Simulated scan of single mutants.
Amino acid sequence: MTRADPWDPADPDPLVLTAILDEDTQDLLDGWRRRWFPPERNQLAAHLTLFHALPPDVLGTLPEDLREVLPPEAPVGTLSGVRSLGRGVAVVVDVPGLDGLRSAVAHRYRDRLTRQDAHGFRAHVTVANFLPPARARALLEDLAAGFEPRPVRVPGVAVHRYRGGPWELVTEVRIGERPAGERAVSG
């Protein structure tokens, strides 16, 4: 079942869950986004969205739920190519384990997902959008011609609150980090 009713008016801003990218990859994709995204539409840093709209009332349990499903080590994969978004271009992200992480979160919230989040997942980072179709095709061809795969690491996930355009960072859950006050168990 997917969520069809509107958000609770008392807390209408959904949560966006993104994968955190290693610093070099983030810098590269941010630069591409600044270069090719129409400036008046570019309100966000480059991002790999895992969920577009989780219900805001799960915020109290979401960080712990994420800690339970995150792998023990940061997954490593590849920026493997580019693909068309029609009026935009995305960089394809192949990270073994990312689909499984997303599936685990989707399973926990399966009755609360929007239609968009309940559908399939293809990991990507949008570097251009809202372009005239001919410009988008030309950019795709240019990027594909010179594209070289490169490694990417995902050291955690970030939870944002959607604010009608810009996002507000709520928390990050890093792989291998324990919450404040939690002690390591030795043995």
Rank of each mutant, 00 (worst) to 15 (best):
M1D: 14
M1A: 15
R3T: 12
R3H: 13
A4S: 12
P6I: 06
D8F: 09
A10T: 05
A10M: 07
P12Y: 14
P12F: 03
P14E: 12
P14H: 11
L17K: 00
T18G: 10
A19N: 06
D22V: 02
D22Y: 15
D24H: 15
D24S: 15
T25P: 06
Q26H: 14
Q26I: 12
D27I: 13
D30S: 03
W32N: 00
W32R: 10
R33M: 03
W36K: 07
W36Q: 01
R41S: 06
R41N: 06
N42L: 04
Q43E: 11
L44P: 03
A46Q: 00
T49G: 06
A53I: 05
L54E: 01
V58C: 05
L59W: 00
L59Q: 02
G60P: 00
T61G: 05
T61V: 08
P63T: 05
L66E: 00
E68A: 13
V69R: 01
V69H: 02
P72R: 12
P75W: 12
P75N: 10
P75L: 09
V76E: 15
T78A: 13
S80V: 05
R83K: 14
S84I: 04
S84M: 07
L85C: 02
L85I: 05
G86K: 04
R87T: 07
V89K: 07
V91K: 01
V92A: 14
V93L: 09
D94T: 13
V95H: 09
V95Q: 03
L98R: 01
L98P: 02
D99Y: 06
D99H: 10
L101G: 01
S103N: 09
A106T: 02
R108S: 06
R110G: 08
D111W: 08
L113W: 02
T114A: 03
T114E: 00
R115N: 03
R115D: 09
Q116K: 05
D117K: 00
D117L: 07
A118T: 08
H119Q: 11
G120W: 07
F121G: 06
R122T: 11
H124E: 11
H124D: 10
V125E: 02
T126N: 04
V127K: 01
L131V: 11
R135M: 08
R137V: 10
L139W: 08
D142F: 10
L143H: 09
A144M: 12
A145D: 11
F147S: 01
E148D: 11
E148G: 01
P149S: 14
R150K: 13
P151S: 15
V152R: 02
P155Q: 01
G156C: 12
A158E: 02
A158F: 00
H160C: 00
Y162C: 04
G164N: 06
G164L: 06
G164Q: 06
G164R: 02
L169R: 04
V170C: 07
V170R: 06
V170F: 03
T171D: 07
T171W: 03
E172K: 09
V173K: 05
I175Y: 04
I175P: 00
I175L: 04
E177T: 12
A180P: 12
G181V: 08
R183L: 14
R183E: 10
V185E: 13
V185N: 08
S186H: 15
G187V: 14
